[in-house]
């Protein structure tokens, strides 16, 4: 039984390969980009707008509002990163309703890549916001004794991010796969519907946690 799309290899040249995870990721990227392009091609700044524009505006302003509610005072600065995290994970998870589509978020490689992005983005935003020295000093707070614990916390939460998303998505796919062999008619459909909900929740959790980490890294100066 295949645990993730990594094991489905379409093409390989030495260590370079095109597997199912990358292919599905491209599909998600294509879907999001083309969808955005099609909708934003006819954007209008009038009072009356199309329903798709209205949907995108609600989506974007909802993300901005969530970022702001977490505590970041300039949410639009973080919208690109956090919004894309949410949209990518949500888009990938929603794709599970398409038959034979294996969500890239069900691959540890993808979740690890996303967690690494967060791992890199948090100090980057912190340094950009507060300066390198002040950011590094934050690891010594409240006392220098906390330095190893802070570093361990930094690494462990990154790991937790990756494993949480992977575990949830992979387990959902696994359960559906197992149920297909036991009761192929009704239960997989129900589990897929539940998986959609779980996928959306995971997308929300991942992006919110990333926002919280970035907010924690930048809050020292903002406070």
């Amino acid at each position: 039984m295949r645990l993730s799309g990594d094991e489905l290899i379409f093409w390989q040249y030495e260590w370079v390969k095109l597997n199912g995870t990358i292919a599905s990721t491209w599909g998600v990227i294509l879907f999001l980009t083309m969808g955005s392009l099609l909708i934003t091609r006819h954007l209008t700044s009038d009072i009356t707008i199309s329903r798709w524009q209205c949907f995108l505006e609600i989506l974007v302003t909802g993300i901005v509002k969530q970022i702001e509610e977490v505590g970041l005072r300039q949410p639009q600065k973080y919208l690109g990163f956090i919004g894309t995290l949410f949209l990518f994970i949500a888009g990938a998870n929603l794709g599970t309703i398409i038959p034979w589509f294996e969500p890239p978020t069900g691959s540890l490689s993808t979740t690890a890549a996303l967690a690494i992005c967060v791992f890199i983005a948090v100090p980057m935003y912190g340094i950009a916001d507060d300066g390198l020295l002040n950011y590094l000093k934050s690891y010594l707070k409240p006392t220098f004794i906390m330095l190893p614990f802070n570093i361990i916390g930094e690494v462990s939460r990154t790991l937790a991010l990756a494993i949480r998303l992977f575990g949830n998505m992979m387990s959902g796919a696994m359960i559906v796969g197992i149920l297909l062999t036991i009761a192929p008619l009704i239960l997989p459909m129900l589990m897929t519907a539940l998986g959609l909900l779980t996928g959306m929740v995971q997308a929300y959790i991942f992006s919110i946690l990333a926002t919280v980490y970035i907010a924690a890294a930048t809050r020292t100066r903002e406070a």
């Binding site: 990594d6 390969k17 597997n19 995870t21 990358i22 990721t25 491209w26 990227i29 894309t84 990518f88 890239p104 691959s107 490689s109 993808t110 690890a112 890549a113 996303l114 690494i116 992005c117």
Partner: peptide
């Protein structure tokens, strides 16, 4: 794959 996904993201 991790690297590719990072770039993709």
């Amino acid at each position: 794959t991790v690297g590719a996904q990072l770039v993709n993201f």
